[in-house]
Amino acid sequence: MTSRLSLLFASTSLTLAMGLPALAAGPTPVRTDGQCGGVCAAVFTSDDLPLPLIRVSGDGEEEDDEDGGWFRRGHDDDDDEDECEDDDDDEYDACMGAGGRGNPAPAGTVAPPANGLFGSGAPPAAVTK
């Protein structure tokens, strides 16, 4: 048991003695000029060329802002100033209208307005074909 522990301790010490100076001698993984050196180069590059930067998000090249859209139903982009999502699954959300009002209640959820036009029979119904 003691010899096994001694062997383990010796191999760990040897690894640390050889590995730490090698790691400490290397430059910072990515230099300011974009070059990769030392351990970084060994691990991340197969040649001398730096890896291309991958932008997760950004402004510029592919802005989908060409709809000119004062009336772009269903195509609003994130720059939409009224923060009103336009997914059709949410047709009756709490978006505010042009006059700062909410959307009307859809048919079947409340009674029709009492404007004298409707009788008291079947509620309004609509189908699209």
Binding site: Y92, P106, G108, G116, G119, P124, A126, T128
Partner: peptide, 22 residues
């Protein structure tokens, strides 16, 4: 228009509304 609002209608489609009218 509360209670009498439905979806917009696509081009070439037919909207059929049934109402109980005075």
């Amino acid at each position: 228009i509360n209670g009498i609002t439905g979806a917009s209608v696509g081009a070439g489609r037919t909207l059929e509304i049934t109402l109980d009218l005075a």
